[in-house]
Simulated assay, not measured.
Amino acid sequence: MDSNIPLESPSLSRRQLINFFTGATIAVPAGYALYVAGKFLIPPPEKTGPGGAIPAKDVLGNLIPASQILAESPGTRALVAGLAGEPTYLIVKEDNTLDSIGIVDNCTHLGCTFPWNPIDQQFQCPCHGSRYAPDGSVVRGPAPLPLKIVQVAVIDNSILISPWTETDPRTGEKPWWA
């Protein structure tokens, strides 16, 4: 048996060393660029409250204080960005509080957004003529279903909007969107 240990140890050749440094020189900036692109493209998680509630925001993403909407006259329907940025109507009641039900501004026919018509007291979709009652139930088609609703709560001058998971008060059935 030969117990001699060779004195020469394997080492990197010059070519392997240059390839290593070239790869590292490319990998570090590329990794950093991918990290920055990922932070830009992936939105930060939204802070939610109990039951998945999020604060109401304006079109620019700024929080809307409850006092701003409650300063409007009773019967006003204020449009805010609600769950997943969906436009949502909040209703000021006669006692200057917000209704606990918000109405999502998406027509159930083809998903159009529409205005509240205060003269006719209806939501009217201008695209195909669907009309909805003040509570979001269908008055005239072609919309097949009532409008989606959300829960609205006011806590410390903040408006919190959360998904509606209970029985739909308009139909007495399980919500079609849940």
Rank of each mutant, 00 (worst) to 15 (best):
M1S: 15
M1R: 14
S3K: 08
S3V: 06
N4L: 04
P6E: 00
P6A: 02
P6W: 00
S9D: 03
Q16W: 02
I18P: 05
T22M: 07
G23R: 01
T25K: 03
A27R: 01
A27G: 11
P29A: 02
P29R: 01
P29I: 08
G31H: 08
Y35H: 05
V36Y: 10
V36Q: 14
A37Y: 09
A37N: 05
G38N: 09
K39W: 10
L41Q: 02
I42D: 01
I42L: 15
P43D: 04
P45N: 15
E46M: 10
G49E: 04
G51I: 01
G52Y: 11
P55S: 01
K57L: 14
D58V: 08
D58F: 08
D58C: 01
L60E: 13
L63C: 02
P65E: 02
Q68M: 12
Q68C: 04
Q68T: 14
I69F: 14
I69E: 02
E72C: 08
S73C: 05
S73Y: 03
R77I: 12
A81L: 11
A81G: 05
A81M: 05
E86D: 13
E86G: 01
I91L: 15
E94D: 14
D95Y: 10
N96R: 10
T97V: 03
S100K: 13
S100A: 10
I101E: 03
G102C: 13
D105Q: 15
N106G: 03
N106Q: 06
T108I: 06
T108P: 05
H109D: 07
C112D: 02
F114L: 13
W116I: 12
N117H: 11
Q122A: 12
Q122G: 07
F123L: 14
Q124W: 05
C125E: 00
C125F: 07
C125L: 04
P126V: 00
P126K: 13
P126T: 01
C127Q: 06
H128C: 07
H128L: 03
G129A: 14
S130P: 06
R131A: 04
A133P: 15
P134C: 07
P134D: 11
P134I: 09
S137R: 04
V138L: 07
V138E: 09
V138H: 08
G141K: 02
L145Q: 11
L145P: 08
P146A: 09
P146Q: 07
L147R: 08
I149F: 11
V150G: 09
Q151G: 15
V152Y: 13
V154L: 06
I155L: 03
I155Y: 15
N157M: 00
S158G: 04
I159H: 12
I159P: 11
L160T: 04
I161W: 03
S162I: 12
S162F: 11
S162G: 14
P163W: 05
P163S: 09
E166F: 04
E166A: 13
D168E: 01
P169I: 14
G172P: 10
E173G: 12
K174M: 06
W176L: 08
W176Q: 05
A178V: 15
